[in-house]
Amino acid sequence: MTPTKTKRAKKAKSTQWNPNIVVFACNWCSYAGADTAGVSRIQHEPHFRMIRVMCSGRIQPGFVLKSFEKGADGVLVSGCHIGDCHYIFGNERALEQFDKTKNMVRLLGLEEGRLRLEWISAAEGARFAEVINEFTAQVRKLGPSPLNSDNRKR
C-alpha cells in the first residue's frame, strides 16, 4: 500500500460508526477463550464489553433484553461447547433460554442479527477474535440499534 492509500484507509476507518456490543461469557470457556486471544495477542475489534458469569446457564433473557433496552447494538451470548460444560448441561439450558430471548427480540422488532450465540472453548483464542470481528462487522452493517439513544450515526 502506498502511503496515501494507508492514510486514506485510516481516515475511512476513523469515520466508521462503532457499535456498542455486550458480550456475556461463562467463566470456564468463552471468557477463558478471550483471555487466550490476549495471551496470543490476537488483535480484534474493541467495541464490545464483556460481562462474566460462572456458566452460560446463568445468562437469562432479562440480561439480554436489558442490554437491548439500554441501547446495545448487539448482544453476544457465549459458553462452552455442547458436551463440555463445566456444569454438565448448563449450556444446554442456556440454549433454551436463548431461544426464548430470540423470540422476544424478534417480536420487539430488533433485527435477529443483533443477537448471537456462540460456543467458544478456552483454547479457541483465535476463534474468539474471529467471532468478535465477524459479529462487529455484522452489527456495523445493521447500523445503530433503534433503541440506541445517542444513535451515533455518522
Binding site: D35, A37, G38, R41, P46, A129
Partner: peptide, 14 residues
C-alpha cells in the same frame, strides 16, 4: 490487560 491492552494495541483510543 488480556482482554484490552493486549488485543487492541493498534487502537489505543478505543
Amino acid at each position: 490487560r488480556d482482554q484490552c491492552s493486549w488485543v487492541h494495541a493498534g487502537q489505543p483510543l478505543e
